[in-house]
Every structure is written in structure tokens, then in C-alpha cells.
């Protein structure tokens, strides 16, 4: 970064001569210092997990959650500056509510990602603001049934809907990641924060893409997510951390279409397996041969 210190990094809304916005790049640095967050889109749902670094023993365990529910079927995890993340979540809730007010139907994951991408982007444009110091992972499950209507009297007829396109499916699990620049993509698996490199390497090993869709099931994904957070955690940098995990399934799955915390028993089982897997890996590493006389 040779152009640092030349004044082009002092404000948003000023490009450097080689076409960069340094304030946005610095915001990305803030994200890279935050605890790892990951999202996995699997066959029957989405799992979100974060490595919540414990900064003080005086903080209550499992309080101060880092993954938030934005609407019944939508969750957001983030890495980076926590107050920025809280504001992002507030705004996401407003957007989800506004959509329901206007269209009487839940916002789709894609539409929420689009709205929030636009919101983040707006904070890269003006002198009076700074970009968000977070990267957010948005997970959701859009109803595969006929989209429900808020404010409809009764549940409507079970018969009479003629001429549907047969064999065409709608809705399902979706995952998006939004960066400080406002850039967002849909992902099979997403990782951000401190341990993103090793987390991404682990995500790439999972069967998430392909034309037939992901093979991984929700329960497998919960266990993989826990393992990946443990792999991505760096003991030498931060000693203590808590694993926070949420999941979203379809109406016929364990969460009945809602974004919820992974039940304690399942999370603890996943953590046990994650720790065991790490120990096994350590054993496999060849021992240094000692020179003896």
C-alpha cells in the first residue's frame, strides 16, 4: 500500500488515483481481526456458527449473543465490530418488517441480502459516515409451500389452485455474505473473520455444491460447523472462546422453518466430536524423531 499516507485514505468518497477506496479496505481489516463466523447451506437447511471470543472472565457465559434473528426464517451472523453488527441487525429487522407491511408476506433471503447490501454500500459514499466494520453472513429458509399471506382471513381453500408448473420447486435454504463495500454473493459455504482461511479450506472439502445440490444434511452440517470453528480457532492468539450456533430448517425439519439456536445437547455433542477430531489430527502428525546416543 504505497499510497497510504498520501491523504487518499482520510475519507470515504475520495478515490485514490489508482481507483481504490482506502476507508473500505481498512474496514475489511477490522473484520479480519474479529472472531470467525461461518455459514453452511446444506440439503435441508442452513447452519450459522461463530467463534465468540471471551474477552473477560467477568462476562456472563453464553450471554451477549453474536447471531441474531431478523425475521422468523432469517438469521444473521457477523465478524468485526460488534456495535456495527448490532446496528446492521436493527436495520435488517426493519427491512424484514417493512417488507411484511407492504407485501403481507415474508421477505426472501435474496431480497433481504439485496436490501442490506444496498445499505452497506451507502456507507461507503459520504463524508459524514464510515463504512461498516463488519462482514455479515445472512442465512434463511424461504418457504417451499405456497407463500403465506399475513392478514388473510382464514387459511384459504385447500383446493382450486389450478395450472401450477409441475415439477418446479420454490424456496429452500439460502446463504449470503455481505462485505463492508456492500458487495454480496450467494454462497454454498461462507467464512469470515480471523480464522477465515482455514475455515474456507475446511468448507471446500464438504459436499455443498454440484448440480444435484448439497448432500450434507443439517445434523451433519451442525457437526461440521462446530469442527470448523474449532479448527479455525487459534489458541496462541485467544485462549477462551464460546461456540455459538443457530440453524434453520424447512417446515418439515427440526426448527419448522424458524431460525433458532441449536439445542444445547446437540451443540455439546458437536463440540465433543470437534475436540476429538482435533486430538486425533494431532496424533496423526508424525512425531519429531529425537536423536539419541
Amino acid at each position: 500500500m504505497t499510497s497510504i499516507g498520501t491523504g487518499y485514505d482520510l475519507a470515504n468518497s475520495i478515490f485514490s488515483p489508482d481507483g481504490r477506496n482506502f476507508q473500505v479496505e481498512y474496514a475489511v481489516k477490522a473484520v479480519e481481526n474479529g472472531g470467525t463466523s461461518i455459514g453452511i447451506r446444506c440439503k435441508d437447511g442452513v447452519v450459522l456458527a461463530v467463534e465468540k471470543i471471551v474477552t473477560s472472565k467477568l462476562l456472563k457465559q453464553s450471554a451477549n449473543k453474536r447471531i441474531a434473528t431478523v425475521d422468523r426464517h432469517l438469521g444473521v451472523a457477523f465478524s468485526g465490530m460488534i456495535p456495527d453488527g448490532r446496528h446492521f441487525i436493527d436495520r435488517a429487522r426493519d427491512e424484514a418488517r417493512a417488507w411484511r407491511d407492504t407485501f403481507k408476506t415474508p421477505i426472501s433471503t435474496a431480497d433481504l441480502a439485496s436490501r442490506m447490501g444496498g445499505y452497506m454500500q451507502a456507507y461507503t459514499l459520504y463524508q459524514s459516515v464510515r463504512p461498516f466494520g463488519i462482514t455479515a453472513i445472512v442465512g434463511g429458509f424461504d418457504s417451499t409451500e405456497a407463500a403465506p399471506v399475513d392478514g388473510e382471513v382464514g387459511s384459504g381453500p385447500s383446493c382450486g389452485a389450478g395450472g401450477k408448473v409441475l415439477g418446479k420447486t420454490h424456496g429452500g435454504p439460502f446463504l449470503y455474505m455481505i462485505e463492508p463495500s456492500g458487495l454480496y454473493w450467494g454462497y454454498y459455504g461462507a467464512a469470515t473473520g480471523k480464522g477465515r482461511q482455514s475455515a474456507k479450506a475446511e468448507l471446500e472439502k464438504l459436499d455443498l455444491g454440484g448440480p444435484a445440490g448439497p448432500a450434507l444434511t443439517l445434523e451433519e452440517a451442525v457437526k461440521e460447523a462446530a469442527r470448523i470453528i474449532y479448527v479455525a480457532h487459534d489458541d496462541s492468539k485467544d485462549k477462551e472462546f464460546e461456540l455459538e450456533m443457530t440453524w434453520i430448517s424447512g417446515a418439515d425439519g427440526p426448527t419448522k422453518g424458524l431460525h433458532q439456536e441449536v439445542p444445547k445437547a446437540l451443540r455439546e455433542e458437536a463440540e465433543r466430536l470437534a475436540k476429538k477430531s482435533l486430538e486425533d489430527d494431532e496424533e496423526e502428525e508424525p512425531k519429531e524423531e529425537k536423536m539419541e546416543e
Binding site: K104, A147, E152, G154, P157, G160, G163, K164
Partner: peptide, 17 residues
């Protein structure tokens, strides 16, 4: 997604499928 659908909105502004 839904095929043919009918909604009625009578005088008070309620919505019926």
C-alpha cells in the same frame, strides 16, 4: 408458483382466499 388463485376483498377491507 401458485397456479390460478382467487382473492376477494369485500367492503370492510378483509382479504379472503
Amino acid at each position: 408458483r401458485h397456479g390460478g388463485q382467487v382473492y376477494s376483498i369485500p367492503l370492510g377491507g378483509s382479504l379472503h382466499k
